[in-house]
Design a protein around this nucleic acid. Sequence first.
DNA 1: CATAAATTACTTGCGTACAATTTAATTGTG
DNA 2: CACAATTAAATTGTACGCAAGTAATTTATG
Lengths: 154, 154
Amino acid sequence: MSKKYKNLDLDNQLCFALYAATHSITRAYRTRLDGVGITYPQYLVLLVLWERDQQTIKELAVRLKLDSGTLTPLIKRIENLGLVTRKRSENDERRVYVSLTVAGKTLEKRVASIQKQIACKTGLSDSEFFDLRDSLYKLTESMNDNESNKVIPA
Amino acid sequence: MSKKYKNLDLDNQLCFALYAATHSITRAYRTRLDGVGITYPQYLVLLVLWERDQQTIKELAVRLKLDSGTLTPLIKRIENLGLVTRKRSENDERRVYVSLTVAGKTLEKRVASIQKQIACKTGLSDSEFFDLRDSLYKLTESMNDNESNKVIPA
DNA sequence: CATAAATTACTTGCGTACAATTTAATTGTG
DNA sequence: CACAATTAAATTGTACGCAAGTAATTTATG
């Protein structure tokens, strides 16, 4: 809380810019993923599973910053598509593990070309790309840090 | 289409970063706007109207890159809250003009402090702030340009 | 060991977001 | 002028995204 008071118009510009950029990326993916039969959020869930298979709803929720109210029905949809299976943990029956099926694993290769298209279309130089990513992460961190305003003194 | 082939993981990182940043901003606004009784998308519509009052659904849709399927019900909600009025154009009865009520205009001052809070919480330096905004705009433009792939030769 | 507290997933309800369709009004063309 | 094409809103149906609440299981505490 020092000299960080920005012009309100500028702040609005940032909100709009974020809003617009997210929509443009989502839209680009949506039109291309349509042929594969999945949505962008479903793609993100699969992305997380392609990184590491067999994760609980909770783990997916933390990674994607979504709650179970969003994930449970979403995952049931990709289960119905035959891309993942759901299975309750035997150690802890509260947990539900989500695993890729063969079809789910196979899909990774099919979407690689889509990812490549999008990456190309960003039109950003490498340095812009990295700076943008880092600024976005920094922004997210600041917003989340400040969100829980419980300053716990040591 | 030159040397713009990025590592897929990095592209994913950008998607995630965008996704996360948008959610963090939206969440920050949501918790604060809750006291005012409006949602973040409703706030964005009001923002556009505070810039210039009395716009058609179409104009709002273009500015916010949303379609009437989203805006029509949203605007009916802020109409029910008494913040705007809807009135069909007399020149062209296809158009519906949305105008701020006194309550709608008054709200601008009430949310100014919220905007100030968010602006502060971004935690970005001025240069990071500007670079981020510009990169986001550039990204959006590239995505939208490429979206309509109809290259019309002169 | 029994019970309270915490954790995990599920469910419900509301509000976006968008594709696709419909309706009504306006503009363009022969 | 008539009729096709276009435009603007509204409607319908599907899928998020999240708050709030529920149910079942596990962990913590007295």
